[in-house]
Design a protein around this nucleic acid. Structure first.
Length: 268
DNA sequence: CTTTCAGCCTGACGGC
DNA sequence: TGCCGTCAGGCTGAAA
């Protein structure tokens, strides 16, 4: 599951090979992604110079001379630099070849990702909240936006208009570290507790990005996956097991159709 | 305005 | 062993 740290790691891995290079060819083997990948996109993009590659939320943006491409990895997508004539693996859907010989492959078994081209601003970026590691994301923002909200705090911090890039894993972990139950109403959490929560959201994401970076070299060479999954997760995926702090049984509930694991003893 | 929820998709896993 | 049901999850857009 590519969360924000994995997308950031991907960006750092591919950016040096794409920036200031011309796209020689795009090959689309499977156009049925989240939205259809159009022939028009490949036609428009081929021959263009890549001005820059950036990230916004979990989207990668390939800035071109004319317009830009928006890439999302969805649930199971990955981008790898491969040998020029590497064998096509199952679920390799798109290949982008650069003038310097770099070859980028998009691999996505579940096909929840997207590759979209737009002349102007992409509609998917229009209503996004601030980046979690920016100063715009602060406890005041969480506190103000949460007033009168009856929604549970976990889906609230996972909403993209609140703050971007906080997926199920890191929302669960940050709430555990903050001692806040994920099903507590967002509007009934104090300013003081939002200060604590904001700090943990930033810390857990920053740590994960740093760990992703430790395997950057392998990642670029196409030999491995980003390494942040190796980090110890205290609650995510550990429903029914023992709490790492109090040894009590972790509870697994559904919030907004998503699995939410927490410790009923440590989180209130 | 708010909140909820179906749907997109494949692979992993458990039960029989 | 294989089949079948269930689950996982980000995001959109429609419904309530």
């Amino acid at each position: 599951m590519p969360e924000l740290p994995e997308v950031e790691t991907t960006l750092r891995g591919i950016e040096p090979w794409l920036a200031n290079q011309r796209i020689v060819q795009i090959t689309v083997r499977q156009p049925s992604l989240r939205w259809p990948v159009t022939v028009g996109m490949a036609t428009i993009v081929q021959g263009q110079l890549v001005l820059a590659v950036t990230r916004r939320a979990k989207y990668l943006i390939v800035e071109l001379e004319y317009g830009s491409m928006l890439i999302h990895l969805g649930m199971s997508g990955s981008l790898r630099l491969t040998a020029r004539d590497a064998d096509w693996r199952k679920h390799d859907h798109i290949e982008m070849r650069m003038a310097n010989g770099a070859t980028l492959r998009y691999h996505d078994p579940r096909r929840f990702g997207c590759w979209l081209w737009s002349e102007g601003e992409h509609r998917h970026l229009a209503h996004l909240g601030p980046e979690p590691l920016s100063e715009e994301f602060c406890s005041d923002r969480l506190f103000q936006l949460s007033r009168n909200r009856k929604m549970a705090v976990k889906p609230f911090i996972m909403e993209n208009r609140t703050v971007v890039g906080v997926g199920n894993i890191y929302a669960s972990e940050a709430l555990f570290r903050s001692g806040i139950r994920p099903d507590r109403a967002a509007g009934r959490i104090s300013q003081q507790r939002y200060i604590v929560l904001t700090g943990h959201i930033k810390a857990v994401l920053a740590a994960a990005i740093e760990q992703g970076g430790t395997t950057l070299r392998d990642f670029v060479n196409g030999n491995g996956e980003p390494g942040y999954f190796q980090q110890t997760l205290a609650v995510y995926g550990r429903g029914g097991k023992g709490c790492t702090v109090c040894a009590g049984v972790l509870k697994d509930i559904k919030l907004g159709q998503r699995s939410s694991v927490f410790c009923p003893n440590c989180q209130h």
